[in-house]
């Protein structure tokens, strides 16, 4: 039975990784911006959910859309006011800018909320099939990862803004000549990235302790997942997340938790050498 439990652990964990990485992957793929704020966005979403739940008792799942919208607004404004000014500069410039913004956001959260780990203590229980257990809050996280991926796919395929985002990514100049307001598309894209982080944060508040100490961990996972899954295709984050989750789960069980993270990084290095586009990434996005 252990085998099933390990595989299930890996899939569920992988889905959570995908939740972390979807927004990050979008921003990186479209804007070519490595968004150092992403981990803090997730934690901010977690804090908003935690405090709203703590003071009103409303279920995190109901709070999720509101938290996600709040993060969208924040992401939009940040991109509009700051990142758009340097978005065409080399990637190091935008990296430094988002790093600086992250320091501000991170320290603001530490000052106002303190780094004390908090958690929405709604234990939703766990489903058991014989000896195999599936925690319900993680199941919710998995559902969220699938829904977010599907929604993003549909938006990119079917909506005006989605087509505009794709157009801007393909050729910024040509898109501008076609009358697309490029900077606005950038702001909306960054907003969507933040929205996805906020949605993940709302679910994570039930699964993980909410503390600013975790921002760096989330950011690191998002990065690895994107490299493994590949940029430029919507399901990339989902595939990368699942792959990383499964590998860490199996490695953690067989060769010990101390080495599980190392194995994930080794996979990343291996892929960078033999397949820089990642598992299902599109060429030209690496």
């Amino acid at each position: 039975m252990d085998v099933f439990q390990i595989l299930l652990n890996g899939i569920v964990l992988g889905a959570l990784y995908a939740c972390i990485a979807i927004g990050f992957s979008l921003v990186w793929g479209v804007l070519n911006v490595i968004n150092m704020l992403h981990g803090s966005f997730i934690i901010l979403g977690g804090y908003l959910t935690y405090f709203a739940w703590h003071y009103t008792g409303i279920y995190p799942i109901i709070l999720l859309p509101f938290v996600a919208l709040a993060l969208f607004a924040l992401g939009y404004v940040l991109q509009h006011l700051f990142i758009n000014k340097v978005v065409t500069a080399p990637v190091l410039t935008t990296l430094t800018l988002t790093f600086g913004l992250d320091m501000i956001l991170y320290n603001l959260m530490t000052v106002f909320f303190t780094a004390t780990p908090r958690r929405v203590t709604l234990d939703l229980g766990t489903l058991s099939f014989g000896d195999v257990y599936l925690p319900i809050d993680r199941l919710l996280g998995m559902a969220l990862a699938l829904v977010l991926t599907a929604l993003l796919y549909l938006v990119m395929r079917g909506s005006r803004i989605g087509r505009a985002i794709v157009a801007v990514r393909m050729d910024r100049q040509a898109a501008a000549l076609m009358g697309i307001r490029v900077n606005q598309v950038y702001s909306i894209t960054f907003g969507i990235g933040a929205l996805m982080a906020g949605a993940a944060g709302a679910i994570f508040a039930m699964v993980f302790p909410v503390t600013t100490n975790l921002t760096g961990v989330f950011l690191g996972k998002a990065f690895v997942v994107c490299v493994i899954g590949g940029l430029g295709s919507v399901p990339g984050a989902l595939v990368g997340g699942l792959a990383l989750g499964l590998i860490e789960s199996v490695a953690g069980y067989t060769i010990g938790p101390q080495n599980a993270i190392t194995v994930g990084f080794l996979l990343m290095l291996f892929l960078l050498v033999v397949r820089p586009t990642g598992l299902i990434g599109v060429k030209g996005y690496e």
Binding site: D2, N9, L13, F208, E248, V250, G252, Y253, Q258, A260
Partner: peptide, 29 residues
């Protein structure tokens, strides 16, 4: 490792060993 985000693999392994006493150390989170 520092930076571990999830303990499910270890917890599953511990469960298979069915201990009477589990001793875990770490930061509060």
């Amino acid at each position: 490792a520092v930076g571990t985000m999830d303990h499910s693999a270890a917890v599953s392994a511990i469960k298979s060993a069915s201990p009477d006493w589990i001793y875990m150390t770490g930061y509060t989170q």
